[in-house]
Design a protein around this nucleic acid. Structure first.
Lengths: 206, 206
DNA sequence: GTCTATAAATAGATAGAC
DNA sequence: GTCTATCTATTTATAGAC
């Protein structure tokens, strides 16, 4: 998950380091508490910097949040972007499921950052959803439709197929506490990969 | 979704009416903004009452939220509770999926109220998750295991099967804006029931 | 029971010294 | 660049009149 905070303007090492510290702390705090539920105090404590120092690097609380969302958007969409129209249809889609689940396992905070935003109506992300996300999805849906038409995969509704992949994989990050509360001591990610693979084989096999 | 606000203590009609007004307004506001993102001003405006009047009926902002969560918990778990061990296994599970999806369609605010809470670590709900929810799930898992053992349904991991049902159905309520942003003009709930039915037939058929 | 006015606490942001 | 002190706005909650 490295894509964020690229030096679009030249920065000193210390500037870069402090921006990184702040964004890392903000990710921790925002993903756990949502935007309104998070305070600059929490973020500055987490980052080990003073509150005014935060605002030396970012214009406002909003600006930190914005930077996080936009900086992580690309990475968030990346697994779908790499869906290869020239690959084998079913393995290609199963690999996408696997990548998404792996993202939930490795980067649950990023997932919950977006989840927090979207459950609340995505006030700061709606343009990206209707723009970048929709465009990418529309493009990949053509591929999926094609695979269906050629009989390579079952005849499933391509949009809802993608919703299924998102919902089933991100559930393990976004609703982690509930999953763990129900499972008790079992580790969710021990069984989830095989379970989801099995599910999508069944869904996709013609 | 009527179960909430039952008269555990006798109340006048006007008391009951105002409590209802407040809880209805609070559901609207909390589900859209989360707990910290909501203010008593928003809730009192939505309810058409003054802010101090809210606090005449409820001790605090927390108390309103608490009452909402606990009052809706039963209704939230109801579809799973009615899963009948003596029914036909596959139709019984498909009916559960259908009920849950119908809840997402009819009561998206309730779904998002819980979603908001759980993404943020369920600070005010953890006991209920580890208690009532886990107990109910454990009980129903036995039934599902039984059906599997008897070859009536496919051999699927029962806990993850339930997670799948929750995640796929609640996705349409919790991530509604994203679903609609991607679908454009199509109405999600026109296709979702048939799609999910198809998916779970494939998952469950031995 | 309901309201206006207000207290008390919290939180985002700025001033200005170093 | 970084900090302490502080301003200002917001927000929860209460006091007290009607």
């Amino acid at each position: 998950m490295p894509k964020i905070n690229e030096p679009d303007r030249p920065r000193t090492r210390i500037q870069q380091r402090n921006r990184d510290l702040i964004l890392e702390a903000a990710l921790e705090v925002f993903s756990n508490n949502g935007f309104r539920g998070s305070t600059l105090d929490q973020i500055s404590n987490q980052a080990g910097l003073s509150k005014p120092n935060l605002l030396y690097y970012f214009a406002s609380k909003d600006a930190i949040h914005e930077e996080l969302l936009s900086g992580l958007m690309d990475t968030w969409l990346d697994p779908l972007r790499t869906l290869n129209p020239d690959g084998e249809s079913i393995p290609e889609l199963l690999a996408y499921v696997e990548r998404k689940l792996e993202m939930s396992r490795l980067y649950p905070r990023e997932s919950r950052l977006f989840a927090n935003e979207i459950v609340q109506g995505a006030p700061r992300m709606l343009d990206a959803l209707k723009g970048d996300l929709k465009n990418l999805v529309d493009e990949k849906v053509i591929i999926i439709r094609d695979w269906s038409a050629q009989g390579k995969i079952a005849d499933v509704h391509p949009y809802h197929l993608l919703f299924s992949i998102w919902s089933l994989t991100q559930h393990y990050a976004d609703f982690d506490v509930q999953v763990r509360a129900v499972l008790g001591d079992e580790e969710p990610f021990d069984q989830a990969p095989a379970y989801l693979r099995d599910v999508f084989v069944k869904i996709l096999t013609p």
